[in-house]
Design a protein around this nucleic acid. Structure first.
Lengths: 192, 192
DNA sequence: CTCTTTACATACATTCTGTACGTATGATAC
DNA sequence: GTATCATACGTACAGAATGTATGTAAAGAG
């Protein structure tokens, strides 16, 4: 079985990403050791440190892939041409569904900010889930209103509220109540 | 200089807490080694592991003390007998002031959830900063309104928004804009 | 004054991370 | 096709960190 270098790289990298994701989700970043990762992936630590600069870089790659997946799952459900408010509510449901996948809150919302720093984590969000939230809000809020003028800040704050809701739901909180609270927050932003 | 056991314990514990706080703030939990902590505190690792079960327990003690300090700083400014909305705005300013202390966002908002778990971190919040927020909101929102009925959830979401704002401000964001956005969120919750 | 407990100090075992070095195989130039 | 190079690993090692086990001196109790 002669494989091209490209194929080998691809196979090894995804094996590492898959194994690392499973362990990071299960035990958290700090309690996951690289020997366990490579053992689960069926490779050696030499392969890991060949493809990734260090453990943190591997974690970053896992998180980036996960964030893209979440964004894609939400996007897949977005009904086009719906009213701005409805689109936001649908987006909220999609986000909570996506974040219900076991361990995603830990991976994306707890470990990522601590390991990568809040700036890198926030940047990741901005390019994925937060981007669609911003788009939705900009459709809902007229630029003339104060909430519209503060679009960036309001987006960041609401995004954080979404994250907290996702965490609470993942830990057994009342999903309907948190969804209602989010909707109430959004409705409050609309001009009166 | 013959000291009682109580005094020795007190002195050693606070020396450890102070040194650990400074290093955790400066480098983060993961990049702070216990040899460095005890060296800065002028004691040995034996003393550390005598007074604290492990590194995590020391971190928890640091975070608990810090959370109480933040709550106290906010409380100290709270003007009694002001209107509900004004009280919340004053509380917001106090929170942002308190969280402006260098490294507090990292300690309380980034490392604590990752190290202690979101549940323990959330519980810490509930007993400190989040408690006064809840009280303020319960004065502002009538229990008959939806926002009032969802007080617990709304408090959690807003608390998270406060935290995100504090992080952004600490990283150079526009404080006035984030304050305005927070106020706009709160005002939106008031019944129309 | 004796006995026990507390508050440390020291030494050790385990484990992890990152690096240095060696090797085999695919890719490339001729 | 072959010589050369680059890539993709595997292995061995150095350094450091955590937690524990064990020893000791001083405080406290009776």
């Amino acid at each position: 079985m002669a494989r091209s270098n490209k194929d080998r790289t691809e196979a090894t990298r995804t094996a590492l990403l898959d194994a690392a994701r499973a362990l990071f989700v299960d035990r958290g970043y700090a309690d996951t050791a690289t020997p366990d990762i490579v053992s689960a992936a069926g490779v050696t630590r030499g392969a890991l440190y060949h493809h990734f600069e260090d453990k943190k870089a591997l974690f970053l790659a896992v998180v980036e892939r996960e964030a893209r997946t979440v964004a894609a799952e939400i996007e897949a459900r977005a009904a086009p041409e719906t009213a701005a408010r409805k689109a936001l509510v649908v987006g909220a449901r999609g986000y909570f569904d996506a974040m219900s996948q076991k361990g995603r809150t830990r991976l994306l919302l707890l470990d990522a900010p601590a390991v990568l720093g809040s700036e890198r984590a926030a940047a990741l969000d901005r390019n994925n889930a937060e981007a669609s939230l911003r788009a939705g809000l900009s459709n809902l809020l007229p630029a003339t209103d104060e909430a519209g003028r503060l679009l960036d800040q309001v987006t960041a704050l609401l995004s954080s509220a979404f994250d907290r809701a996702a965490i609470e739901i993942a830990e057994g909180g009342d999903r309907a109540a948190y969804e209602a609270a989010i909707v109430r927050l959004i409705d409050g932003l609309c001009p009166r």
